[in-house]
Structures are given as structure tokens and as C-alpha cells.
């Protein structure tokens, strides 16, 4: 494992912790898109189908359990917890799941490395992860007040994807036959979706003003 991959995973972990901190400690999910969180739960459920049958390393198994567990508990908190659900901005979080899930499923059925259930589901999870942030970005744009933790959460998620690209570049030059077009193209698209957010995030940081995305 190289430093970019580890930094990427740690940034991903940090994003989840920031979100759990907001939800668990402050008992608020204001500005957080339930749609995006449900899509992430679906991403991990379809990607880690082999968690108990295909062992890679202790590190991988533990991280997979953390991402699965946190994704489902975040969804549970927003839907079921009596205090947290009150802060959920339902009226602005209107992105429809099937606009995202259906095209990803069709694409996975058409473009994959091997036509088996597990590989198609794995490919579906890559396509879905690439666009799962869209409901969250739409919600941020509609929310006039982006609080600090929500801003940090989205920034950490974007940083995680950017670090994974550096990891692929590193692995491409250091490992023989390391080519994964499907992973790379969907990962690149996923990272590009954050470009706009990054721009305004750094602007607000540089000018020391509150983060706000233009309508």
C-alpha cells in the first residue's frame, strides 16, 4: 500500500467520522442529503458482497466493515432517530434515486469486465459511487447556510477521491499490468464532480468567509 492510498482511505474515514460526529453529538443532520447517504449504503452493500468469501487483508476487512456499518447507521439515524430526523431538510433533498440507480445498473450490465453477478454488482457500485454525491451537491447549492461540519464532510469526501487518483498514477508506474479502465474513468468523473465545490471551498477559506455556493 502506498502513501496516497493510505491517505485516501484515512480521508474517507475522517469524512465518515465528521458526519457521525455531527449526527451523533449535535443530533443534527441539517444540510445532509439522505438520498446521497442511501446511495452510499447501496454502493458499499453491492461492492462488498464478497467481504466474507474473499479475504484480502485484515486492514481491508476492517475498513469494509466500518464503511458498511457507518453507511447504514447514518441512514438509520436520519430516518429513525427522533431528534436527528427533525433536522432533516426533506423539502430541499428532492433528487430521485432511480434517476441515478437505474442508469448505473444499465451501464454495469452493458460495460463490465466479466458477466457474473458479483462482477456486475461490483461495477454497478463503482458507477453509483461516482454520481452518489450529486443529491448532496444539489442540496448544498439550495441551502443558504452551509455549516462547518457539512462543508468539511464534503471536502474530505472529495479529497479522498483525489488521493485515490494519485494512488492509481503511482501504482500504474510501480506495478506491472496495473490497468483498470472502468475504475479509473468512473473515479475521474467522481472527482471532477467536486471541482466546483473545491473552488468555492478554497475561496471561502482564503477570504475567511462563510462557505456558500452560488445558485
Amino acid at each position: 500500500m502506498n502513501i496516497f492510498r493510505l491517505a485516501g482511505d484515512m480521508t474517507h474515514l475522517a469524512s465518515v467520522l465528521v458526519l457521525l460526529l455531527k449526527i451523533h453529538t449535535i443530533k443534527s443532520c441539517a444540510g445532509i442529503s439522505l438520498k446521497t447517504q442511501e446511495l452510499y449504503a447501496l454502493v458499499f452493500a453491492s461492492r462488498y458482497l464478497d467481504i466474507f468469501t474473499h479475504y484480502v487483508s485484515f486492514y481491508n476487512t476492517v475498513m469494509k466493515l466500518i464503511f458498511l456499518g457507518s453507511a447504514f447507521s447514518i441512514v438509520w439515524y436520519i430516518r429513525r432517530h427522533k431528534l436527528v430526523r427533525r433536522s432533516y431538510d426533506k423539502d430541499h433533498d428532492t433528487f430521485r434515486h432511480y434517476f441515478i440507480v437505474l442508469p448505473c445498473l444499465i451501464l454495469a450490465l452493458l460495460i463490465h469486465e466479466k458477466f457474473t453477478f458479483r462482477v456486475v454488482m461490483w461495477t454497478f457500485s463503482l458507477y453509483l459511487e461516482a454520481v452518489a454525491i450529486l443529491p448532496q451537491l444539489v442540496l448544498l447549492q439550495r441551502t443558504r447556510n452551509i455549516d462547518n461540519l457539512t462543508g468539511q464532510y464534503v471536502f474530505l469526501l472529495g479529497a479522498y477521491r483525489a488521493l485515490y487518483i494519485l494512488n492509481w498514477v503511482y501504482r500504474y508506474f510501480t506495478e506491472p499490468h496495473y490497468v483498470h479502465w472502468i475504475t479509473w474513468i468512473s473515479g475521474l468523473i467522481q472527482t471532477l464532480l467536486y471541482a466546483d465545490f473545491f473552488y468555492y471551498y478554497f475561496q471561502s477559506w482564503k477570504n475567511n468567509v462563510k462557505l456558500e455556493l452560488p445558485a
Binding site: K114, V119, W122, I182
Partner: peptide, 10 residues
């Protein structure tokens, strides 16, 4: 060619 399931990334 490496099987995608043996992909070691998260």
C-alpha cells in the same frame, strides 16, 4: 489479467 474481484482497493 487480474480479476476485478481480487481488486485490493476499497
Amino acid at each position: 489479467k487480474e480479476h476485478p474481484q481480487s481488486h485490493d482497493e476499497l
